[in-house]
Amino acid sequence: MVNIAEALDNIRLLDALGEEKSTVHALHPLAKLFVTLVFLIIVISFSKHEISALLPMVLFPTIIITLADLPVLPLMKRVLIVLPLVIGIGIFNPLLDHRPMVSLGAITLSYGWISFISIMIKCLLTVITSLILIATTGMTNIALALRKLKVPKIFVLQLLLTYRYITVLMEEVILTTTAYALRSSGIKGIHFKHWGSLLGQLLIRTIDRAQRVYTSMCCRGFDGNYNTGTMPTLVAKDYIFMLFWTLFFIITRSFNLPMLLGTILTGVYP
């Protein structure tokens, strides 16, 4: 129950952060969406054994978090939520691939471990950057930017309404589970016998609630178009933002920057 309430607060925190003012918030939503998409594609494109070349990509979320003055801990906590899933995907790599790849003194890292670490870094980078996009732009502005990118209206609307439905669902879950806990005389969690009826109730209640929200939208002229104000036009700083980061990502992808820097500084060529 507390976890669900926390999760609801988490979503609301992202919404609240999206309304803040900073140099990053002031950028055009389209510019931020574009740079984030390029970032995601580039990060994913690194091969599973490239770790050092991937590391400079950390600069992007780090700089944006600093400039946008985002709270690091709450963001990291949200990233941790997906970590078990990623561990589940990558954990078999060290077990299946024992071929040695790197030796650090007495420790030898196998190809399996390297690919596992690479998956973890990619996960952290992609999730945190997506969260940063929501926290600096807001879901509504992201939707506007998606429409600018000619993403079909139906998909954008689906995204927005699903995002809103999550909070409706969670509010109902909190109410239902609280009512259950108050009458379950100290039983921890929800007894499996009640799962069916509780889930059924929850579904019906959330559909009812969503219907009422939808009705209230229709009463105020909603016709399937989610109008959220006029989109500002792209200005010079937005183009510079897009150009700078896109170039940086392409350079990072094309050259192994840490190795290049190490070579220049130490004068030792591989």
């Binding site: 999206g18 309304e19 939208m217 002229g221 909603f222 109008n227 104000g229």
Partner: peptide
């Protein structure tokens, strides 16, 4: 249902 009171009040006129 919007993120700010302003956007909620503006929802109808914008539609």
């Amino acid at each position: 249902f919007m993120t700010t009171v302003y956007d909620d009040v503006a929802f109808g006129p914008r539609n």
